[in-house]
């Protein structure tokens, strides 16, 4: 992964910052320039609360390059409270404890290390809901 890209995406990776349409109120993640619902272009930043439920998940056994050390790991589609769905790994949970519908919350964790000399990339993952 290139460094400018990871720097550029810091507001998304570390705090789930998306956009909100000032015309129709629709919220988006990732951030957009055009609202997919009303096609409006007046959008403002919106930080998601980071709480939601699991819509679907998979347990990865054969990983892409760079992720081999983490298998088996869980990747899920998470429905955020604000009505937006995101793709992220689940953490602090073993694969056989995951179920569709379970409440989860966002945390920042290591996504991967780019070899011994490369960057360590951090970003959002979701863990079982601890905060009441």
């Amino acid at each position: 992964m290139d460094i400018p890209r990871n720097w550029r995406l810091r507001d998304q990776r570390y705090r789930l910052q998306g956009t909100k349409c000032t015309s129709c109120g629709e919220r988006h993640f990732p951030p957009r320039q055009v609202c997919p619902r009303c096609k409006g272009r007046a959008l403002e930043p919106y930080v998601f609360k980071g709480r939601g439920t699991v819509y679907s998940y998979t347990v990865v056994y054969q990983a892409p390059e760079g992720y081999e050390d983490y298998v088996p790991y869980v990747v899920a589609l998470v429905d955020l409270e604000e009505g937006v769905r995101v793709t992220a790994q689940l953490t602090d949970i073993s694969p056989d404890e995951v179920s569709i519908g379970m409440p989860v919350e966002m945390v920042v964790r290591k996504l991967y290390e780019e070899g011994d000399q490369g960057i360590i990339l951090y970003g959002y993952k979701f863990r079982p809901l601890l905060t009441p």
């Binding site: 890209r5 990732p30 679907s56 998979t58 054969q62 990983a63 892409p64 790991y73 990747v75 793709t87």
Partner: peptide, 24 residues
């Protein structure tokens, strides 16, 4: 690349998300 693949999601895994939800 920025929002799916970076999560360690292979192309197989994307289809697995669909299959799991379909079964459910």
């Amino acid at each position: 690349a920025d929002y799916e693949a970076v999560m360690g999601l292979s192309f197989v895994a994307i289809n697995a998300l669909l299959m799991r939800r379909y079964m459910y």
